[in-house]
């Protein structure tokens, strides 16, 4: 170090060096160009196309609350379609454990699902939603109407690139130990 003082007593302390570091500042002209460039980038950011995950996040935050009815109706239809398809195909969908009794699906109704997004985070995070719904199944057992009601436990859905979440929501059990698996599709 050519300028380094040979006498150690005249060398700076760490505190003094840090004081020097505090003085490293840009000149005033720098801020003029900084402001111009920032303004340009702000405008560019406003007009750019948002990637899918940002759109999903925004929709989940602001769109879900407004479209709960539509989502509920979609779910009800989808569940019904899936259930009818499975149950109409016989024992594969709704297999009787006890061969002495016969169960026919009479109707299935799904209450409007309650969907909540995860607690609003102040940083961008993967979007998750929690869904809970009530389902009533009306089944005819040997000419006696039976009604099974079930309420799903909360499920966590994570939006994928297709902004759809599919998962097994329920395992439906009756006193006759008849079991059905239903797979509704939630649209985000």
């Amino acid at each position: 170090m050519p300028n380094h003082p040979s006498d150690p007593t005249t060398r700076p302390t760490l505190e003094q060096l840090l004081q020097l570091k505090r003085r490293e500042q840009p000149p005033q002209e720098f801020w003029d160009s900084f402001d111009r460039e920032l303004r340009r980038r702000q405008l560019a950011a406003l007009v750019r196309t948002q990637p899918w995950y940002e759109r999903v996040f925004l929709f989940a935050r602001f769109g879900l609350r407004k479209s709960t009815t539509a989502i509920g109706a979609t779910c009800a239809i989808l569940i019904t379609l899936v259930a009818v398809d499975r149950f109409s195909s016989g024992p594969a969908g709704f297999a009787p454990a006890d061969s002495g009794s016969t169960v026919y699906l009479h109707a299935i109704e799904v209450a409007q699902p309650e969907i909540r997004t995860a607690r609003a985070a102040e940083s961008a995070a993967p979007m998750v939603a929690e869904a809970r719904y009530a389902m009533e199944v009306f089944a005819k057992v040997e000419d006696q109407n039976r009604r099974f009601t079930t309420v799903s436990s909360p499920k966590t859905l994570t939006a994928d690139s297709g902004n759809r979440g599919t998962f097994v929501v329920n395992k439906l059990s009756s006193p006759d130990r008849r079991v059905a698996m239903i797979q509704p599709v939630f649209e985000f």
Partner: peptide
Amino acid sequence: EWLDSLASGQQTEKSALVNELQEKLNEAF
């Protein structure tokens, strides 16, 4: 300040010293 005492009044010497210390400090950071 300490800088004045180190550079013994020579402006060029002081600038060179400041630049060197700045570089070393940033490297250490």
